[in-house]
């Protein structure tokens, strides 16, 4: 199954952050992902698109080993983060996830205060030495998530009391508070209304300055708007990977074209 060689499109000056080679994922006996090879670049937004059940979320969850929490899941192949195989026996997934943050489909703030939500990561990873330092990290993260001005007067109120869009930005702030190097986003806007979606999309574009962002999305418009690179998945295989502009205007694989024009999916 090697139907889509990674296209050697014009590379930006950005360095490669993640390299995936021959990744296969099984859920029990069922193969969910077949032999995927991809290079994810630093300071770039990479979008994974494809019809439901094509394996894009599964692949995303390989990058921070969230699949480990599913008892039946098995991952083969190797994924290198800055040249180190994250599936190496010596790697602690807990330590990995501090470097590779994740934002989920549905906003899932903890039933704690806004402050406690954001400070949770830095606290468990022991990133700060004092309360003032922690305050600083929380403020910085909330500012980066474009939420500071809305919540700065009610940091001690419950995170669950915010609106949907605010909750998702809180989750983004929570994820970036551990200063990860990669930020994974699993359909972060699917539970949001259009206005909140626009805010989050704008935020994603800004986050690119500090992180490598990988986003799974159902919406091709969203992929076109926020990403620089796009990967198209179909039936568990990576069909095509390249610059977003190329994929959307001049796809090389007929399946990509059918999907983009709305004939499959």
């Amino acid at each position: 199954m090697y139907d889509a060689p990674t296209p050697e499109t014009r590379l930006t000056q950005n360095t490669t952050k993640i390299t995936a080679r021959g990744v296969q994922v099984y859920y029990g006996d069922k193969q969910a992902l077949k032999d995927v090879n991809v290079d994810i670049l630093d300071n770039t937004v990479t979008a994974f698109i494809g019809p439901s059940g094509c394996g894009k979320s599964t692949f995303l969850r390989c990058f921070n080993r969230m699949n480990d929490t599913v008892a039946s899941a098995r991952v083969q192949g190797e994924i290198l983060l800055d040249g180190e195989n994250i599936y190496d026996k010596r790697v602690d997934p807990v330590q990995l996830r501090a470097k590779v943050g994740m934002v989920f489909q549905k906003p899932n703030p903890f039933p704690k205060s806004i402050y406690d939500n954001v400070s949770y990561g830095p606290k468990i990873h022991g990133l700060t030495r004092s309360k003032t330092e922690l305050d600083q990290v929380v403020e910085e993260s909330l500012r980066k998530a474009a939420l500071w001005n809305e919540v700065k007067d009610r940091l001690n109120e419950a995170g669950t009391g915010l609106s949907g869009g605010q909750q998702q930005r809180l989750c983004i702030a929570r994820a970036i508070a551990t200063s990860p190097e990669v930020l994974l986003m699993d359909e972060p806007c699917s539970a949001l209304d259009p206005i909140a979606t626009a805010q989050v999309e704008e935020l994603i574009d800004e986050l690119r300055a500090s992180f490598s962002v990988v986003i799974v999305t159902h919406s091709m418009q969203q992929a076109a708007r926020v990403s620089q690179k796009t990967a198209f998945f179909h039936l568990g295989s990576l069909v095509e990977y390249g610059d977003t502009s190329t994929i959307f205007t001049n796809p090389s694989d007929p399946r990509t074209e059918s999907y983009i024009t709305g004939r499959i999916g």
Binding site: M66, G101, F104, N108, Y120, G121, C171
Partner: peptide, 15 residues
Amino acid sequence: VPQSLRDGSYGLGAT
């Protein structure tokens, strides 16, 4: 307790 809360915490690198 919803699974999404566990995911959120594991996603942040909590044990």
